[in-house]
Design a protein around this nucleic acid. Sequence first.
DNA 1: ATGCATTTGTTCGTATGTATG
DNA 2: GCATACATACGAACAAATGCA
Lengths: 244, 244
Amino acid sequence: MPPNDPVYRESGIALWRQIAGRLKEEIATGARPPGSQLPTEALLSARFGVNRHTVRRALEELNRDGLVRVEQGRGSFVAEDVLDYTVEARTRFSEWIRRHNKEPSGRIRQLRALAADHHVANRLGIRTGSRVVMMERLGFADDKPVSLTQHYFAAARLKGILEALQSSAGITEALKKVGIDDYLRQQTRVTARLPTPTEADLLRTARSRPVLVCENINVDRSGAIVEFASGCYPTPRVQIVFEP
Amino acid sequence: MPPNDPVYRESGIALWRQIAGRLKEEIATGARPPGSQLPTEALLSARFGVNRHTVRRALEELNRDGLVRVEQGRGSFVAEDVLDYTVEARTRFSEWIRRHNKEPSGRIRQLRALAADHHVANRLGIRTGSRVVMMERLGFADDKPVSLTQHYFAAARLKGILEALQSSAGITEALKKVGIDDYLRQQTRVTARLPTPTEADLLRTARSRPVLVCENINVDRSGAIVEFASGCYPTPRVQIVFEP
DNA sequence: ATGCATTTGTTCGTATGTATG
DNA sequence: GCATACATACGAACAAATGCA
């Protein structure tokens, strides 16, 4: 099969530079949207009528420039814009998303009371087995899922929190209804793991791509713990940034 | 094969509770050290002379209590103490480790000059292709590997940095030799990915377990960028903590 | 890449003892 | 005595993840 889109030989510009330039243009114009998969190296070499090594040289360049991401065994992908999750004392989901000029939205997946396990109880500073209210919420930026977070509240400390959450648009609003006018982030703890099948599905991420797990403890002005939240965020779409 | 360490039936205490208690004791006494693998469920059920479900019920309890970590396809492991990597303005490796009452050490794996790629140049605020000095160092806490970090320095800004690093015990000392008395962390960026085979090997972590990738930009007192460092840390042994 | 052995995870079904009304 | 509900315990089979050759 002849190349259907050949590059110019003996033009004084190396073939791989021409190819890199063409692909850069296709990415810049939006013909290849962020996150989309590039053709395989074999297909590209057929298209341009060059050896696969020449295509690889071009892809290497695009990779070094951060325009594409090459994954062994999977393929090459146009780099996605990264959502920097900047951790500050007063971090709210909607503000985070809006700062990136995207439209925040969310879907509540669970909202119920249960008994705290060891981990949750520890973080909330209560006894294992105490009643807590848990809300699980899937967060979107421009209809793309970016977070899946479980929020935990000590039922004894925040009477009526379940009903408040049911009748409110957001957490800040619900906490106001139970007398918490303001809350601050006391601690943020970050780790990572592979997603469960459900998480991978909800966050539209590959099962082999880790999620960042970000645990927050939020306190009221007196320093009493109000909320413990454990959220997961798909990499590399989301990165967590600290600026002291 | 008869059980060699049976539990008491009709004792008024559920079998799974007895098993959980025995295992808890073995962990508490140090007979099963942190990170060690428990016998398989099949072996445990043979040892206690019960069904595998009964053992699983006990392991579930220990897992909820945070004493063991169960991993499908691998086994159950005694929980390890987590090394909290607390991000502060003046974060130094040795101080981090000593704060956990462990002995810091390190092994330099690479130290050389090279041309900055797009990413490194961006972070250092220099042009792509500029000369940079890179030092790769494997960090240990009590002889257990906990970090693998590449440190980048702009060669033009820090003349003699390569020689200074060669003749110094640590980065802080080397920077002093080239006139940087103090440096502060300006930004920390966290993401995660699966380790390369080499990384997994060096950090003694499973290839399926993600590493946290932590990128730092360090500046001198005038705000000029001194160092860009990109380190990876094995999860869940290391967690990154931020306290505003 | 493929298959195999090992190990945990899930889902059936069955049976038993205990507490409750 | 009887019906019910619940936790406990066992058995078998299969699914899914891991590691290795």
